[in-house]
Structures are given as C-alpha cells and as structure tokens.
C-alpha cells in the first residue's frame, strides 16, 4: 500500500452562493493543500498533526477518494474505511442498529454481510439497549463509539480516523487503542488525525506536520511533534494535561 500524494491542492472550498446585494456571488478559493507529497508503506501508522485549518481533514478526504485533488495524483492500495470528523451521522432519528445497517451498506457491503457483523459491532460498542433507541438520545461519546465500531469492523486494509476519538471516555479510548493495535497486528495501515499528541506519539510509526496546507515535516512521531510544539510555542507539559479533558 502506498500513498503517493504529489503536488496536490484544493482551491475548491468555495465560499459560494453567498449572494450579496443584487444576487452577486462571493466565491473564494482556498488552497487547502499545496505540494504535499509522501509515501506510506504497508502496516504503518501515520499521524497527522497541525493547527486548526492546516489542511488535515482535506488531506484525509482526498486520500479517501471523497475529494478529487485539483492537481497531482493519489495512489491507494487497499480498501479504505473512513471515520472522519465526528460521527458517521447518518440519520439521528433512527436507532443505532438501523444506523449500523445504513453505514455498512453505504460503504458497499451487502445486507447479509452487515447483518453478520452487527452482533460483533453491537457488542464492541457496549451500548446495550441504547442501540434500539434513536441516535438523538445518544451522547456525543456514545455516537463516537458507534461510529468507530462501524468503521473498524468493516475490515479495511487502511483505516483513516479523523479526530473521532476525542469525545470518548477513558474506557472507550483504551478499547479503541486496543482495537487499533490488533488491526495493526494484522498488517493494516492506519492514518490518524489527532490533536492528542501523546496518542500520536504512542500509536504512530510516522508523523506528518501540516501547516497552512504545506508539508512541514515528515518523520518519526517524536521528532515531528517536538518540532511542532516548538513552533507553536506551547509548553508540551501543558498540552499533555489538556489531553485529559
């Protein structure tokens, strides 16, 4: 599995259809990513760090095939399962079980395949009776559990997780780490976007630091995070304590 992201930018986040005055349109182009290029070999874990708006989410969306790049080329070898930006968010009026079905079918599984996995997913979430209730009754942590469970049980070769673990409680985080480690043991590849730098340092084998859409650094997580912290001027100790929240 190789990611070859070469010279890619996205000037398409157009703040469009903001019609001002006499029906004029305001169109702004955002270059979310510029000249980002890297390879990620199989069964590695890539952590992506950077400030808000650095282009992390755009990068993983491009890698998942949701946004085609405006320039460059992305090669992905393997089936991708994505867990992007807080919750699968299918239909919150429906129950957890129904959302599992909808989520699985959306990714391209057949009804029978999803049914087969449903028990396993349900058990993993530990949500019990809540799975029969509409998702509007779920807390954000509970939705995160469900979304994570659906994503990891889809047997992806590559799992892409975008800040999806931040709302979970301690036991969920521990469980999520354990699940990710077992996926790793089966030679899966993972991409992790996170502001929890300790998590990145602990789980990842490689790290990328994005700043304003540009690839600032690619290397071992320890070094990248150190450089990133130095640039933000934030005391790493303060960051570590913040992660407990």
């Amino acid at each position: 599995m190789t990611y070859r992201t070469t010279f890619e930018k996205r000037p398409t986040l157009k703040d469009s259809l903001r019609r001002v005055g006499r029906g004029e349109r305001v169109v702004r182009e955002v270059e979310a990513l510029k000249n980002v290029s890297f390879d990620l070999p199989r069964s590695r874990v890539l952590g992506i760090v950077g400030n808000n708006g650095a282009g992390k989410t755009t990068l993983v969306r491009a890698m998942s095939g949701i946004l085609p790049p405006t320039e460059g080329r992305i090669e992905i070898r393997g089936r991708v399962s994505t867990l992007l930006a807080l919750g699968v968010g299918f239909n919150t009026k429906l129950s957890g079980y129904e959302n599992i079905m909808l989520g699985g079918l959306a990714v391209g599984y057949s009804r029978a395949e999803v049914e087969e996995k449903t028990d396993e997913i349900a058990e993993w979430t530990e949500l019990g009776d809540f799975l029969d209730m509409p998702m509007t009754t779920y807390s954000s942590g509970m939705s995160a559990r469900l979304a994570f469970a659906v994503a990891v049980h889809m047997e992806p070769d590559i799992l892409i997780v975008d800040e999806a673990l931040s709302t979970g409680d301690a036991s969920f985080k521990a469980k999520a780490h354990e699940k990710m480690n077992s996926l790793l043991a089966e030679a899966h590849t993972m991409v992790l976007v996170s502001h929890a730098l300790a998590t990145v340092e602990e789980l990842c084998t490689d790290a990328i630091w994005l700043e304003k859409g540009e690839l600032k650094m690619y290397g071992p997580p320890g070094e990248v995070i150190e450089a990133y912290n130095a640039s933000t001027g934030v005391d790493p100790a303060a960051v570590t304590t913040m992660q407990d929240f």
Binding site: G65, R77, R79
Partner: peptide
C-alpha cells in the same frame, strides 16, 4: 504491473485506487 491486473476496479470498491484531478 498491479495497475494492469486490477484495471477493472472501480472507483469506490476494489483495492487499487488512483485519484487524479477531475472535478
């Protein structure tokens, strides 16, 4: 070589994906 053998893979499923600019 891989590209050739999986050339009939579509854009959503399958195991080899190439994403290039086309809006």
């Amino acid at each position: 070589i891989d590209v050739k053998t999986v050339a009939d893979d579509d854009e959503f499923r399958g195991t080899f994906h190439v994403y290039e600019p086309y809006r």
